[in-house]
Amino acid sequence: MDLIPQLIVDALLLGGIYTLMVIGLALSFGVTRVINFAHGEAVMLGAYGAFTVFVAFGVDPLIAMPVLMVAGCVLGMVLFKVAIAPVLKAPHVNQILLTFGIGLVLQNLALVIWSPDGRSVVPSYAYSSFEFGDVVVSGGRLIGFGIAAVLVLALFFWLKRTEFGRATRALAEQHDAAVLMGINVNQMYALAFGLSVALGVATGVILSFLGAITPFMGFHILVKGFAIIVLGGLGSIVGAVLGAFLLAFAETAVSYYVPNGTGWAEAVAFLTLFLVLVLRPRGIIGQAVAD
């Protein structure tokens, strides 16, 4: 029983990181219906961006984050216009192959630029922690959780309260009606895709001081991310947030209470994914996907 407070803290902090990892994926799929297999590489580039500004200019990753997010958003919009837009009406498999290919190109680019050596950013707060009785809270993870909360709330605010956000929701919910209302589809698609990349970059910035940065880190993030958005419901941002916390609690509980449980974390993710696909294919709050 005395493990429960620590379990709750660990699961909440992990859930925050998972949320940040997947809301970008959920946004881009919800609006454009393109499953972005290069999203993990956006995270990877964000992490390397933070590493580079920290090492080269001594700039704290959290200070650099807004600039890196803007750069990621612009890069995402350009990528959408150049590579994704031409295949919007193509079969899903073509889109998957395209984004997968983009991911491979970005991985190799990172290999050339930063080498395959594992890197990490170590600002002072990365190694801070607080103790409340028997409960230990990592400062870096708490910061990650806080940033995830702020960004998720900002995204919801943008979607609900701004003209662009409402247009984005209209496109996601009723594409044809939105077009008839005069919404510039390509512009909104590019913006949603750019924002999803920016959120991936923010995730990378947080991960840069929590763990190791490598050119291949994106793949593992992507796999976990897909499990979460399927669990929450493809295309639903609220579902993605719920899925992130559900999975974080399930994994952490297994880690604590099952012998060798940390080794089972990924199995928990995929068992959950399997059960959701069999019992409730739309996920917790999912939309039906036609094809």
Partner: peptide, 9 residues
């Protein structure tokens, strides 16, 4: 698990 993000538990 290799590439585990959280070893705190």
């Amino acid at each position: 698990r290799t590439n585990a993000a959280d070893m705190n538990p």
